[in-house]
Computed example of a mutant assay.
Amino acid sequence: MTAKYLVTGASGQLGQRVLHHLLETSGVEPSDIIAASRKPDTLIEWAQKGVAVRRVDFDDAASMEDAFAEAERVLLISTDALDRPGIRLVQHRAAIAAAEKAGVKHLLYTSMPEPANSPLLFAPDHEGTESALTASSIPGWTILRNNWYFENLYMSASTVLASGQWYSAAGEGRVAHIAREDIARATAAALASKSDDRKIYTLTGASSYTHRDMAEIIGKATGKDIAVIDVPVEALVQGMVGAGLPDPVARVYASIDTMIGVGGLATITSDFQTLTGVEPLAFEAWIDSQADTLKSMVK
């Protein structure tokens, strides 16, 4: 029997929550879902619920052909090789080619806002994947341009809350970020849709914030005053290198601030509401839900 919906990256944080929302929010039958991962042994819980589990590795064409067999709608969650720009594009193109060969009817891809001409160092991976998808013979496709997750704050939260200093090269740029849980809910809704249209959605929160706005909100929730200190991007890179990050990785992370500074994450849309019928979680509410964890980082 043909399974309708396949989720790649199913063992990752986003993939896990997409599976949850397919079952619990969108009401998809477990027998209509395939969970695919490089680590299928981590998906036992889903197999016990009746979800089919398959191995998929975007560096292994045979595994993709086997995984995509008989799947009608495939969610391609972008891979995690952030420290090696270009590698993901090779992997994603291979996955799209395998989906074409398998006769997939609709492919969904998790991209980023405004990938064309973006200063973000891995933006070309997303732009190239979008181009490969739109040029493919797959009948239908959906591109989900996901804004930054609230949860990405945890990459620097412990350092910021311990020192009370947030070094930023983003200036007064704003971020319309959104909870990972909301991204998962909207992604599951798009995957479970019967639509065969070719569409691009940009998933954002309902408000946008500068780093100073965020620092003030976090400070109120934790009782810790946070000073945002403006620095040039190269100083930001060297600070991260001094903290132990390899230079190429530091430059990738610093390019996020550059992107914010030029407005690359500022656009607010109603696409989340269009897909889900509900409002996205507000940043303030998410910070309140994380207050105990954040307070534990205060020195």
Rank of each mutant, 00 (worst) to 15 (best):
N147H: 12
I77S: 03
E100A: 08
P115I: 08
I77F: 05
G86T: 08
L82F: 15
A99I: 01
P124M: 09
K101G: 06
T129A: 13
A52D: 07
I44W: 08
I138G: 11
S136V: 05
V51W: 06
G128F: 09
D80A: 15
M64F: 00
L133C: 00
T134I: 12
M112A: 09
W148S: 15
K101H: 10
K101Q: 07
F68T: 04
S78P: 03
R145P: 08
N146A: 13
R54Q: 12
L75G: 11
A132H: 00
A95N: 09
S63L: 01
I143D: 06
D60L: 02
G103L: 03
G140Q: 04
G140H: 00
N152R: 06
N147V: 09
K49L: 11
I138W: 06
R55P: 03
T142V: 11
N146D: 14
A94K: 10
L133N: 00
L121P: 07
R93Y: 04
S131R: 14
L144W: 05
N152T: 11
A97D: 12
Y149S: 04
L76C: 08
P139V: 03
R84K: 15
G140N: 02
R73W: 06
L108H: 07
A61P: 10
L75M: 07
S118R: 09
T110G: 05
W141P: 00
F58A: 04
E130D: 07
E130P: 02
F150D: 02
A52H: 07
Y149M: 07
L108K: 05
A71E: 09
S118D: 12
P119S: 02
A116H: 07
Y154G: 15
P119R: 00
R93E: 14
K101N: 14
G50D: 06
A116W: 04
V56L: 14
G140C: 10
A135C: 04
G103A: 04
Q91W: 08
L89I: 13
T134W: 09
E114Q: 14
L43H: 01
F58H: 08
V51P: 05
N146E: 14
L121M: 14
A52Y: 01
E114H: 12
L75K: 05
Q48K: 12
D125W: 07
T142R: 01
R54E: 11
A94G: 12
A69Y: 10
S131Y: 10
P139L: 02
T142F: 05
G103K: 01
Q91H: 14
F58R: 01
G128E: 09
R145N: 03
H126L: 06
T79R: 06
I143L: 05
G86M: 07
E114G: 09
R54I: 11
L133W: 00
G140M: 02
N146M: 13
L153A: 12
A135E: 12
A69C: 07
H92Q: 09
G128D: 02
L153N: 11
D57P: 00
W46I: 03
L120E: 10
R84L: 15
D125I: 00
A102C: 10
M155Q: 14
A123M: 09
S63H: 01
W141F: 06
S136C: 03
R88M: 15
H92N: 10
L43I: 06
H126Y: 11
Q91T: 03
L75Q: 08
A135M: 03
A123Q: 03
K105A: 15
F58M: 07
F58C: 02
D57V: 00
A52V: 05
E151I: 00
